[in-house]
Each structure stands twice: as C-alpha cells, then as structure tokens.
C-alpha cells in the first residue's frame, strides 16, 4: 500500500534520512524503534509529506505523493496521523474535532460535484452525445448529520460520548489522545501513522491509549507506529524496524527482532532498554 523508495531528507546541510526503502502492505502493523535523533519521526512525517522529502518517492495507492504536483490534501484523507502532543483543535469541542474534517470535506466535494454538473449541463446543450452527470446522493444536511452520528458512535466506542460538548482543554492526556485517534479514524483512512502516541502521557494513561491501538490492530487497520513501547511493539507489531543514523538497520518480525537481533547497534540498543 505504501512503497517508500530511496527516501532522503535534508534540513539544510544536515542529512536526516539517508535513503530509506520500505514497503507497508495492507494490514501491516509496523513499529519503528530507534534512539532519539535517528530520524524516526522525520521518516513518519515524510510518509504523509508533512515534511517534503528531499529525494526519493513515496508510492501510496499507486500515486507518488512525494511529487510536488500531486494534490497532497486528497491523499492525506486516506492517511490518518496521530501526534505526540495530540494536537486537538483547541477552538472546537470534542465532537466538532471528530466530525469537522469529514463533514467539511464531504460538503466541499458535494459543492464541487454540483458546480461540475452545472457546467456539464451547459456543455450538454451544445453536444450530440450527452455527458453523464455526477450522481448526488446526499444533501449538505444529510452529510452533516451522518458525520455527527459517526462521530458520536466513535466517541461512544471510546466511552467519551458524555464529553462530546467539552473542550479539549478539559480532558486528560489519555482522553485527548484517544479522541485524536478517533479523529483520524473518522476519515476512514487506509493507514494511520502514529508519532510516539504515548510519549507525552503518564504511565497510567499509556494503557488506555495502547488498548485502543490494539483494538484497531485486531480489526485489521494498517498502522505505522513510531514508539518507545517495547511491549507494544513485541505484542502487536507484525514487523519491527530499527532505525539509526537516518537508515534502517534492521527489519524483522518481532520475535526475531527482540530475541535474535543481528545488527550491532540494535544489540546495544536492546541491551540498554530491556
């Protein structure tokens, strides 16, 4: 689903990523480990072009999204992202946070489809073989109601439906992160990228966030997770990647990765943390 080919990223003269090649298939859960400064987060942020790659390509569903000519916003809809610091929209309520993007984007699509239909109708007046109009299945109100219902269902799923009208500043860290996860889930993405989702949480709250992530994993969601949670990587991941110095040093299934590491740097890393 995602093919990363020779991905390089420089910040000025500083080389962060030095040629990354990796393939993420549908249903994969890829955990990315590595010491800080190894480029894990930059790699993840390059996957949805939050940082524009300096070189190389990222083929997502058959399109090279590293190409600057591609409308990245369309592809980001299918790629959720969860941040270390949650980044919930502070000026919106919890419910609005979850439903805003789907409702707004679908309404925008509707508007575009309508204006395109209008153009087609005018053009059809002068044409022999008529062009088909785009089917419009829902009105704006229906789209909004649907998005709201979906958001409420998602909130119910994480047990926060009573907080729907609260502002993010009143939630605990764990609650914020769970809302952030269902916010990206509300777009029905093909893959969700997690950028150290539990690093800013206290130990008690890490559990509830990991629990939700495990749930998603068991439902077959494709995930790329930058994390320091070794337990999570071992238990849930289908593949673990070790990054150091802007390169992938080892890529293996979790059992092999933790029990039989080959790379020297990885052995050293594991001996320090396990």
């Amino acid at each position: 689903m995602i093919d990363v080919i020779n991905l390089k990223k420089n910040f000025g003269s500083l080389e962060i990523l030095k040629g990354i090649n990796i393939t993420v298939n549908k249903g994969d859960i890829v955990a990315v480990l590595g010491p800080s400064g190894s480029g894990k987060s930059t790699f993840l942020r390059c996957l949805n072009c939050m940082e524009d790659p300096t070189e190389g390509s990222i083929i997502f569903n058959g399109v090279d999204i590293a190409d600057m000519k591609v409308d990245i916003n369309v592809h980001r809809r299918h790629m959720g992202m969860v941040f270390q610091h949650f980044n919930l929209f502070n000026n919106k309520t919890v419910l609005q946070n979850v439903m805003m993007a789907p409702a707004y984007l679908k309404c925008k699509d509707l508007k575009q489809a309508k204006s395109k239909n209008r153009m087609t109708k005018v053009k059809n007046l002068f044409r022999g073989n008529k062009e088909e109009l785009i089917q419009i299945t829902a009105t704006k109100e229906q789209i909004k109601a649907e998005a709201k219902q979906q958001a409420l269902n998602l909130l119910k799923r994480i047990g926060l439906d009573d907080k729907a009208d609260a502002y993010p500043s009143t939630l605990s860290g764990g609650q914020k992160q769970r809302v952030a996860i269902i916010r990206s889930l509300a777009m029905n993405p093909d893959v969700i990228l997690f950028d150290e989702p539990t690093s800013a949480l206290d130990p008690e709250m890490v559990g509830e966030v990991l629990e939700l992530m495990k749930e998603l994993a068991s439902e077959g969601m494709t995930m790329v997770v930058v994390t320091h949670e070794m337990g999570f990587a071992r238990e849930v991941a289908s593949r673990v990647i070790f990054m150091d110095d802007g390169q992938i040093k080892e890529e293996a299934p979790p059992e092999e990765f933790f029990d039989n590491p080959k790379d020297e740097r990885l052995k050293e890393f594991l001996s320090k943390i396990l």
Partner: peptide
C-alpha cells in the same frame, strides 16, 4: 502552536481551510 496547523493538514484540510477554521480563530 504549529501542531494545530499540522493536525488540520493531516486530516486532509487545505492550508487555507486549516488557517480559516483552526488557526485564525
């Protein structure tokens, strides 16, 4: 916080929309 703009972009909103709906308010 720059994370607000990033979060907006990450769910597929354009720069302008993220600006109007999230950052400027």
């Amino acid at each position: 916080d720059s994370g607000q703009m990033e979060a907006g972009r990450a769910v597929g909103l354009s720069f302008g929309t993220s600006m109007m709906k999230i950052v400027i308010p």
